[in-house]
């Protein structure tokens, strides 16, 4: 993991990894978000413009993990733990204590020099444009959230959610539509 830029406002005394890029006018609270970051992909985390990555957000990426975040997204404390790919498209809100992971008993993916724990779904997780993920929701491999959909607070989703659907509960169920 080579070193990238340092954030001016950062309290955590480490630079961001070199394969993290942040678009114009976007906010990233601290390099602490990369406490357990091991991505060796060309673009470990890419954040578009006008997006906010706020306190409590963590990118727990294994060597093959990568996250792409679009424009005008707001993440206020999600933990993304994957050795695969997570895509969060434009205008998405992700509330507090949400976990997005490639396995149900997720853990930080390999300490330096250690092996990556086995398991993990290979499929990428995609959160469509203009989606809204409620507090404490859990999204696992198999979850693809359609454009404009809502995932209710504390819902558990590991299946495709159609565009403009509303899902809630554990296990998650379709409970309505947004249009």
């Amino acid at each position: 993991m080579s070193e990238g830029m340092s954030l001016e406002h950062d309290w955590f005394p480490r630079p961001l990894p070199a394969n993290v890029t942040i678009g114009e006018r976007s906010w990233w609270y601290s390099s602490f978000a990369c406490l357990h970051y091991r991505s060796r992909k060309p673009h470990g985390v890419r954040v578009g413009r006008d997006s906010g990555i706020y306190h409590g957000t963590f990118f727990e990426l294994g060597p093959d993990g990568e996250v792409e975040i679009g424009d005008y997204c707001t993440l206020v404390g999600a933990i993304i733990c994957t050795n695969s790919r997570v895509v969060i498209r434009d205008y998405t809100f992700i509330a507090h204590e949400v976990i997005i992971a490639d396995r149900f008993a997720a853990q930080p993916l390999a300490e330096p020099g250690g092996p990556v724990p086995v398991g993990g779904g290979p499929s990428e997780i995609v959160i469509g444009e203009n989606a809204w993920i409620g507090a404490r929701a859990i999204l696992l491999s198999g979850a693809t959230i359609g454009e404009g959909a809502i995932v209710g607070a504390a819902a558990f989703v590991d299946f495709p959610v159609p565009p403009y659907a509303v899902v809630a509960g554990n296990p998650g169920r379709l409970v309505g539509r947004t249009r």
Partner: peptide
């Protein structure tokens, strides 16, 4: 087990997408 309150599920394959709504 899964849910609130947790109930036994026959086969919890939480990663494969086999357990559907």
């Amino acid at each position: 087990v899964l849910g609130n309150p947790a109930r036994a599920v026959e086969f919890l394959e939480l990663r494969s997408g086999k357990r559907r709504r």
